[in-house]
Nucleic acid binder design. Structure first.
Lengths: 347, 347
DNA sequence: CTGAAAGCGCTTACAG
DNA sequence: CTGAAAGCGCTTACAG
C-alpha cells in the first residue's frame, strides 16, 4: 500500500462533483476548454476542500520539479544572506522553490553538492563557484554568478568598475597613498576589484596590496594587520576588498587611536548588513543583488522552458555585467594634508 | 507525450540486463531478497549508465519528498548563515534536502511561506518564528527553534542561561553598572536574554536596558546611541543582546575615544562571523547551532518516519534547551576603579 | 530468489 | 465543452 496523502486529490474533487479528473485538472490550470460555470464550481469546491496539488504527481508527469538549486561556496560567508534573499525572492516570484547546498570544502565537495541537487531533481541551478573553479556542465541548466573575467559566465557584478568607483572616490578626496586590503589572492572577484582600483588611480597615486591570508599564515588567524604602522608610512586611505576586512581595519585603526575619517579613510565592498550602523558608517560599493538574481533566475526559467531535453548547458553565452554602486558614508573623507606631510617626513 | 528525462530509469536498466524493474529496485535499495551476484551486476550497470533515481517517482509512490523546509523570519538577519549552514548540514547528513523560505513581512507572510513549502511537498519543516508568533499547525511535522519561553517549542538555545553567563562574567570583572543594549522589546529571545542577565546580577549591581528600535523611532535609523554619555553616568559595561548591537556600541565608543576594554567592557551574543576579527575581539555567548539543528532535524526525521498520516503536529512535547557557551575575548576586562569613581562623582 | 502488477497524482493528446 | 485512457518512474505486497 502506498502511503496516503493528508489532503484531497483531483480524483476526490472529480467524483465529489461528478466530473472527470481531466476536467478538474483543466479547470484548475486554466488550460483546455471548460465552461466558465464549471470552472467556477470546481475552483470553489477545490478551495473548500483545501486542495493542494501534489508536486510529486505533477513533477513526475511534466518532468519539472519547479525547484531551483542554489550552490554556495560557503553559506557562512556574510554575503550569503543578501544572495539567498535575492535568489529566493526572484525564484519565488517566478514560481520556483529554492534548495540550498553548501559546497564547503574543496572542489570535490562542490561537485558533490551539485550532484545532490541533480538527484533531487532541480530544474536548474544558480552556482556561485569556489575560487578558481570552472563549472563545466551538469544535468540541468546552470547560471553562474561570479566575475566577468570567468569565461562562460552568465551574470555578475562588475567588480572591476566597482574598484574604479572606489579609486575615483579616494582620488577625489585627495588621497595619494592607498593600501588595498584583501583576503585571498586566489579569488577572482577580489582580483577584479584590485584591478579596478589600480586602473582608477590618478597619476601620482600609489597603491599597495595587503593579503590577509598570507599575513595570517604567519601571524595566526585574527592577528593584527599592523595598520597603524601603515599610517606612519603615509597611507591615508585603506581600501578593503570586502566590508568584513574594512570592519577589521576600521576597528584596528580606532583602537590604535587613529581617527576615521579625520586622519585616514576606510572603504569596503558589498554593503553588508552592519555597514551602515557602525561608527563611522562605512563607505562601500554595493552590488545590486536583486538585479543579478533576477537575471540569473529568468535566464534559468527561459532555458528550462526551452529545453525539454534538459541538457547541461550554461544558460547564456553572453556575460551580463551589472554595475556596482558607490555608497558614500562617513568612513571616508578628505585627505588630511597636515598629517600626511608630517608622516611622509618620518619615512 | 510526457517530457523525457535525460538519464536512464529503472526500466532501462532492467531490460538492458534482462531482469525485472522490481529486482533492479530491490537490488539498488538493498531491500527484498536478491542474490548477491545479481545485486553486484545491477549496481555496476546502474553506475555505468549514470543512473540517478527520480525523486518525483519515488516521492509520488512513497508520499515522501525527502525535503525539509526552513522558514526564517528574515534571511538578511546576520544569524542566518550559521543557522542555514547547521540545518543544511544536519539535513544533508540525514538524507534530506533543504528548501528555504523567507517570511519577510508580517505574520501573514509567514503563513504564506509555510503554505508555499507545504505545496512543494516538504516532509517537515524547521521554523524560526517571527516575534510573538505562535505556530499552530500545518500539514506536516514542524520543529520550532525559538526560546524556551515560547510554549509548544521543540528546541532552543537557553538564552536565559546565556544571559546569566554574561552577568556572571561582568560581575566577576568588578563591573557594577551595566547597560543592556537590545534591539527590539518584542523579541522573546531578547527578553529571555535580558531576564537572564538581570537574574545573574550580584547584589549591589545595577542594570538599565536601552532599546535601539525605540531610540531610532525618534532619532532615525543608525542614529547615535549616546553611549559616551552613559560612560559619564558611570556605566562601565555594555551588554548587547546581539553581536550586531555590540559592534555598533563598540565602534561608537571607540570613535568617542573610549578605550575598550581599558575604560569599559562590551559584550555581545551569538558569536557572529566577524566577532573574532574586530579589534578588540568581541566577548560573546555562542549557541551551539549544530546541536540545535541536529536535534530539530532528527526530531523531524523521527516524526516523519512515524507519521505516515503526516498530520500537523509539533514534533515533541518537551522543550530541549541547549546551553550557551561564554566566549571570553578582548572586549571585556576588569572594571577600571579609577575611572569609575571619578565618573560617579560627576553624577 | 525473482517477477508481474497495481497504483501514487498528475497532465495531455485524443476521441466524442 | 467534457471524458476515457495512457503514462511519467518508482516501490511494495504478493505470487511463483
Amino acid at each position: 500500500m502506498a502511503s496516503s496523502r493528508s489532503g484531497p486529490n483531483l480524483s476526490r474533487i472529480a467524483t465529489s462533483l461528478g466530473v472527470s479528473v481531466a476536467t478538474v485538472s483543466n479547470a484548475l490550470s486554466g488550460k483546455g476548454r471548460v465552461s466558465g460555470q464549471l470552472v467556477e464550481r470546481i475552483r470553489e469546491h477545490a478551495a473548500e476542500l483545501g486542495y493542494v496539488p501534489s508536486q510529486a504527481g505533477r513533477a513526475l508527469r511534466t518532468g519539472r520539479s519547479g525547484v531551483l538549486g542554489l550552490v554556495l561556496p560557503d553559506i557562512a560567508n556574510p554575503l550569503f544572506p543578501k544572495i539567498a534573499q535575492a535568489i529566493e525572492f526572484a525564484a519565488s516570484a517566478a514560481g520556483y522553490g529554492v534548495l540550498i547546498a553548501d559546497s564547503r570544502g574543496d572542489v570535490a565537495a562542490q561537485t558533490e553538492a551539485i550532484n545532490r541537487l541533480v538527484e533531487r531533481g532541480v530544474d536548474g541551478m544558480v552556482i556561485i563557484p569556489r575560487r578558481a573553479t570552472r563549472i563545466s556542465s551538469a544535468a540541468c541548466p546552470i547560471a553562474v554568478i561570479d566575475t566577468p573575467s570567468t569565461p562562460g559566465n552568465t551574470v555578475s557584478a562588475d567588480h572591476w568598475q566597482g574598484g574604479r568607483e572606489i579609486a575615483g572616490h579616494l582620488a577625489g578626496l585627495g588621497h595619494r597613498r592607498i593600501l588595498i586590503i584583501g583576503n585571498n589572492q586566489e579569488s577572482s572577484v577580489q582580483n577584479d576589484r584590485v584591478g579596478g582600483i589600480r586602473s582608477g588611480l590618478h597619476s601620482g597615486m600609489h597603491a599597495e596590496t595587503l593579503w590577509i591570508d598570507k599575513l595570517e599564515r604567519d601571524g595566526g588567524s585574527g592577528c593584527p594587520l599592523g595598520l597603524a604602522e601603515r599610517v606612519r608610512q603615509g597611507f591615508s586611505a585603506f581600501a578593503a576588498l570586502s566590508d568584513l576586512q574594512a570592519l577589521r581595519a576600521l576597528t584596528e585603526l580606532q583602537q590604535a587611536g587613529v581617527n576615521i575619517p579625520a586622519d585616514v579613510s576606510v572603504t569596503g565592498f558589498d554593503d553588508l548588513i552592519w555597514s551602515p550602523v557602525v561608527t563611522p558608517s562605512l563607505t562601500t560599493v554595493r552590488m545590486d543583488m536583486d538585479t543579478i538574481a533576477g537575471i540569473a533566475v529568468s535566464a534559468l526559467a527561459d532555458a528550462i522552458r526551452a529545453n525539454s531535453i534538459r541538457q547541461g548547458v550554461l544558460v547564456t553565452a553572453e556575460i551580463e555585467r551589472v554595475a556596482m554602486q558607490l555608497i558614500v558614508r562617513q568612513s571616508s573623507g578628505p585627505a588630511n594634508p597636515a598629517s600626511k606631510t608630517s608622516e611622509m617626513e618620518n619615512m
